[in-house]
Design a protein around this nucleic acid. Structure first.
Length: 590
DNA sequence: TTAGGGTTTG
C-alpha cells in the first residue's frame, strides 16, 4: 500500500530523473485513517485548515495544514520548504491537496504527516465541476485519470458533507463588532506607525453598517491616494497590522489586492459621550487560527478592475460576492440571498416577467454576458430552457434543510462532545416549558423537543451557556426546527441572561435572546437561452411568486422557440474565482 | 532543525 521507494525513483512531480517516467505502476495512496507511524506515504485530502508559510525558528519556512478524506480522519501536516514556491498554493479551506512522500509521525497521541526527502505537494480547487488544474507555482505536474477521479470524488464528498458551509469570509458590509473574520480587499493607503505596527487603509466595495474609525497620520508618513470620497461613504476601513505580519505589510503598495485571515473587529476606545461606536480592525501578532495576510496575485487586480467609486452600485456588494450574498440586512437569513433594491417596473409587450429601470444597465445578449468581466449588472431578454427544482413542495425544502442540519451538527460534534465530557452535565435549565440542552446528539434533541415542546441546544463558552452556531437550529419546537440568522442576531457577547428568558411563544423567546428567526425561502435555478448562448441563473428575489408562473414561461408541451420571452435584470459576480449569475430587480408582470 | 491549529485580543 505504501510508496516507500527511495528518493527519485517514483514518478513524482518534477523530481524524477528523465529515465524514470510515470509509466511506472500507479502511485499508491493511503486513506488518512490507515496511516502507520514511521512510514512514508502518499495521500490525498481536503484542506480543513491551513496556515500560510511563515518563518520557522530554523532555516525554513513552515506551513501547516489539516486535511481530511472520506475516512473521516483529520490529519495535521507540516511542510518545511526553503521558499514560498516550495509550499502549497492554498486558496481556501476546501482546496484539495495531493501529498507525496510525507512521513507519518506520532505527536501528542495523533499521527501527523511531515514533509520528508523528495516530498511534493500539489493543490487543486475543491469547487465541484471546476477545472482540474494543479494550482502550483512552477513545477510540472502530471495528472492522470486516477487523479481526476480522486479529486472529483473528494470534491463531491466534501460537498455532500457540507464541510465548508460555514465560511469565515465576509465583507465590510457584514462585519460586526468583536467578530473574527477573513477579508478580501484592496489596499488604498499605508502608513508605518512604528516598528511593531503598520496601518493599512482598505476597501472591498461594500459599505460597513457601523461607522468606521479613522486615524490621523502625518501626511508624509502616508503612502497612497486621497480617499476622502470613499471615506465619506463609510467604504474605507483601517487595519492595524502587528509584529510578525509586518514583514508582508511593509512591502505592500496601494492598489494591491489583499487577503486577510482572522482579522478582529474591534470597537474603538476613548469615545466622546454619545458618540457612536466606531469599528477598526486588528491583525494581531502570531499565526494562531491561521492569522495572516497575503497579497493576492495580479490577476485579481485585472479581474476586479471595475472596483471604483463610480461603478460600485450603492447597495451591491460588488466584490467577492458570495452566492448567498445578502444585500438587505433586514430580510436576509444567513443562507438566503435577496437583493434589496426595490424594482421599478418597465412595461414590455409580451413578457411574463419584467425588469427594473432603476439603474442604467446595458442590454446584453447572453453571449455578451458570458464574455463580460464580473461584477456586471445588465438587462437581458431570454427564454427558460429548463429550471430546477421542478417539484416545488414545502416538503422538498424541508429535506434540503434537514440534510444541511445533520452535516453541520456532525461537523461541530467533536468540540460539542469534548465540552460534554469535561463538564459532565447535560441539562442546564429546567423551565417547565423551555429547556436548554447541551452535549448530546441531534437525535436526542429532536426526541426531547417532541417530549417537552421547546428545546434550545446550547454549548458552554468560558463556562457560560451560549447558543450553538446559527447553522444548527436555534430552537426545536415539537417536530419543527427554527433557525436564527447569524447576521441579524446579536453576537453571543451581547446575549441576555438565559435564565431571565420566560418561556413564552417562539417569537418572544427569540426576541428575548436577541435572535432574529429565519424564514424558508424558495430558490429557483433557470437555464436561460436567447439564441446566442445559455446561462444558468439563480433567483431568490420574488422566487415564490415567479414559480407560480412556471407553466407560462416554461410550458411543458411547447418547444423553446415557442416559449415567451422574459425581460430580466441579471447580476454577474464571482464566487471564489467562479462566475455566478443571479436574476435581480425582477418581478412578475401584473 | 524548524512545528506539531484550537474559543484568540494593541
Amino acid at each position: 500500500m505504501l510508496s516507500t521507494k527511495g528518493p527519485g525513483t517514483s514518478g513524482l512531480d518534477g523530481k524524477v530523473p528523465p529515465s524514470a517516467k510515470r509509466t511506472d505502476k500507479q502511485v499508491q495512496y493511503v486513506p488518512l485513517n490507515e496511516l502507520k507511524v514511521g512510514t512514508v506515504v502518499n495521500v490525498y485530502g481536503v484542506v480543513t485548515f491551513f496556515k500560510l508559510p511563515f518563518s520557522s525558528k530554523g532555516t525554513d519556512l513552515v506551513s501547516t495544514l489539516k486535511i481530511t478524506d472520506e475516512s473521516g480522519a483529520k490529519v495535521t501536516c507540516i511542510i518545511f520548504g526553503k521558499t514560498i514556491e516550495d509550499h502549497p498554493s492554498l486558496k481556501e479551506k476546501g482546496d484539495i491537496v495531493r501529498l507525496h512522500r510525507f512521513k507519518a509521525e506520532s505527536f501528542n497521541d495523533s499521527v501527523t504527516l511531515k514533509s520528508s526527502f523528495g516530498w511534493s505537494v500539489v493543490t487543486f480547487s475543491g469547487v465541484n465541476n471546476s477545472p482540474i488544474v494543479p494550482l502550483t507555482s512552477s513545477k510540472k505536474v502530471s495528472i492522470g485519470e486516477f487523479d481526476e477521479r480522486k479529486i472529483c470524488a473528494l470534491r463531491q464528498w466534501a460537498a455532500d458533507e457540507s464541510l465548508f458551509c460555514q465560511s469565515s469570509k465576509t465583507t465590510l458590509s457584514s462585519v460586526r463588532p468583536l467578530m473574527f473574520f477573513d477579508l478580501t480587499c484592496q489596499l488604498l493607503a499605508k502608513a508605518v506607525v512604528d516598528s511593531t505596527c503598520v496601518l493599512l487603509k482598505v476597501w472591498d466595495g461594500t459599505r460597513c453598517e457601523y461607522p468606521l474609525q479613522s486615524y490621523t497620520v502625518a501626511s508624509d508618513a502616508v503612502e497612497g491616494e486621497d480617499t476622502e470620497a470613499k471615506d465619506r461613504r463609510n467604504l474605507t476601513a483601517y487595519i492595524l497590522v502587528y509584529d510578525n505580519h509586518l514583514e508582508v505589510a511593509r512591502d505592500l503598495k496601494p492598489g494591491m489586492f489583499l487577503q486577510f485571515y482572522n482579522l478582529r473587529a474591534v470597537l474603538a476606545k476613548d469615545l466622546l459621550p454619545n458618540e457612536p461606536q466606531h469599528l477598526t480592525f486588528h491583525l494581531h501578532s502570531g499565526t494562531s487560527f491561521g492569522r495572516s495576510l497575503r497579497r493576492l496575485p495580479d490577476e485579481a487586480l485585472e479581474q476586479h478592475k471595475d472596483l471604483n467609486d463610480d461603478e460600485v452600485p450603492e447597495d451591491v456588494g460588488a466584490f467577492c460576492t458570495r452566492p448567498e450574498a445578502d444585500l438587505n440586512k433586514d430580510e436576509v437569513p444567513k443562507d438566503v440571498g435577496v437583493f434589496c433594491r426595490q424594482p421599478e417596473a418597465v412595461e414590455t409587450d409580451s413578457c411574463t416577467v419584467r425588469a427594473c429601470k432603476q439603474h442604467h444597465a446595458q442590454h446584453f445578449t447572453l453571449e455578451q454576458v458570458r464574455s463580460s468581466t464580473p461584477p456586471q449588472l445588465c438587462h437581458i431578454r431570454a427564454r427558460v430552457k429548463d429550471y430546477q427544482p421542478q417539484q416545488l413542495s414545502q416538503k422538498g425544502q424541508a429535506r434540503v434543510k434537514q440534510r444541511f442540519l445533520n452535516s453541520m451538527w456532525e461537523a461541530d460534534g467533536s468540540r460539542f462532545d469534548q465540552i460534554h465530557r469535561k463538564r459532565q452535565f447535560v441539562f442546564m435549565n429546567s423551565h417547565e416549558e423551555l429547556k436548554f440542552i447541551q452535549g448530546t446528539s441531534l437525535g436526542v434533541v429532536c426526541a426531547s423537543a417532541r417530549c417537552w415542546g421547546r428545546v434550545i441546544p446550547v454549548r458552554a463558552v468560558n463556562e457560560k451557556m451560549a447558543l450553538m452556531d446559527f447553522f444548527a437550529p436555534f430552537i426545536f419546537y415539537r417536530g419543527k426546527r427554527f433557525y436564527g440568522c447569524q447576521k441579524c442576531s446579536l453576537p453571543e457577547e451581547e446575549r441576555r441572561d438565559f435564565f431571565a428568558v420566560e418561556p413564552l411563544d417562539l417569537l418572544k423567546i427569540a426576541e428575548a435572546l436577541r435572535v432574529q428567526l429565519m424564514e424558508y425561502r424558495f430558490l429557483l435555478q433557470f437555464e436561460l437561452d436567447d439564441g446566442t448562448g445559455t446561462v444558468d441563473a439563480l433567483l431568490w428575489e420574488n422566487a415564490d411568486k415567479i414559480r407560480k408562473t412556471m407553466d407560462t414561461v416554461h410550458p411543458p408541451d411547447k418547444p423553446l422557440e415557442e416559449r415567451p420571452w422574459m425581460d430580466l435584470c441579471l447580476f454577474a459576480y464571482t464566487v471564489e474565482g467562479n462566475v455566478c449569475y443571479q436574476i435581480v430587480n425582477t418581478k412578475v408582470k401584473e
